[in-house]
Write a protein that binds this DNA or RNA. Structure first.
Lengths: 184, 184
DNA sequence: ACTTTACATACTAAGCAGAAACTGTCTAGT
DNA sequence: ACTAGACAGTTTCTGCTTAGTATGTAAAGT
């Protein structure tokens, strides 16, 4: 967006990513700016130089990471060469599967627990994801809306049922075979 | 089991049902034996006459209610006249849908929060439900296991997504249409 | 087959003061 | 374009005391 710095890779982005990681690990409230600064290898006043407050930092970190994920998902789904089921599996894995399991840090969790801190980008991200998936599914299925809503429910359910990411992927692939009747 | 009383309807059963209702409303820990006794319209020492301890009462209440539910579900699914989708909708509604929403008391919740208090009947109830559903689905579907596991994931997901029971039912019916390709 | 009353023991919730930690800011330095 | 250090004001945590409540048992009654 605007000019921000002199580093080869924008420093703000690196800080945003490590910040959300830290927030996700311990929760928003229990994560101190000191901890975020240490994880980003800068000083705490330096962190306040980059972001006006803890709330702003969290808001921007959430928007940044969700934006990245949605962009990656859009690219995955746009690759018309791959089979639809494969694209959907990778899209849902990126959206939800990678956050499944006790080892994974729960990014969606920390976002859900602090809805008041999020901006429109973050709030609308789930709807944006649903639209991306619907667009990808539409050409292949008779009732895309119902199919996508069902897949979203499966994903939410698996997030609670699956013990880890690989189980999420296995079970979601199975669901895709059930929901997409021999597409292709 | 042993001889228990003189009432036309076994008093223990009435107590068990009102007890689980009370436990579900406030949680196990925060429900006093006094509250259970009052809800059952007996005295607290009278409650101890019927059940040796609070833990035993909870265990038996859970087993009793789950047994009732599974019996009702078995009957619903066994009615071969009704279309499969209708039977499945009613079965899942009874198993999960009726507990969706802020007004509903969360029986599954209080069971999940106190796993150490449950006996085998209660612990095995989810597996028993899955078997009942699988048996009902098997004659109509090529991959019954996958279809049932998917429906279970949808149900878990909807429990978190749906605002109330009627939304659960609508969305689950939609999922049934997606999963069961024009059965019948 | 229960009820009422009562009791010992254990747990838990409430309040509260002191300690600690956190946020946001500032200054001085490089 | 930052770092180091420090500071005021506020929020959170900790340990403690005390009061309230819960469990399980028992006695006596109907």
């Amino acid at each position: 967006m605007t000019y921000r710095g002199c580093m080869p890779v924008d420093r703000r982005e690196a800080v945003l990513e490590s910040a959300l990681e830290t927030f996700a690990r311990h929760g928003y409230r229990r994560t101190s700016m000191e901890a975020v600064a240490t994880a980003a290898r800068i000083s705490r006043p330096g962190l306040y130089f980059l972001f006006d407050s803890k709330a702003v930092l969290f808001r921007e970190a959430a928007a940044h990471v969700l934006g990245r994920d949605l962009a990656a998902i859009e690219e995955i789904l746009g690759d018309a060469h791959a089979p639809l089921a494969d694209r959907l599996l990778e899209a849902f894995d990126r959206w939800a599967g990678r956050y499944v399991g006790p080892l994974a840090q729960d990014v969606p969790g920390v976002l859900a627990e602090n809805p008041g801190l999020l901006d429109d980008t973050a709030t609308n991200a789930p709807a944006a994801f649903e639209r991306l998936v619907t667009d990808a599914v539409s050409p292949h299925v008779v009732t895309p809306g119902a199919a996508v809503r069902t897949l979203l429910s499966v994903s939410v359910g698996l997030k609670h049922q699956a013990a880890d990411r690989s189980e999420y992927r296995e079970r979601f692939r199975e669901a895709l075979e059930v929901v997409l009747p021999s597409t292709e």
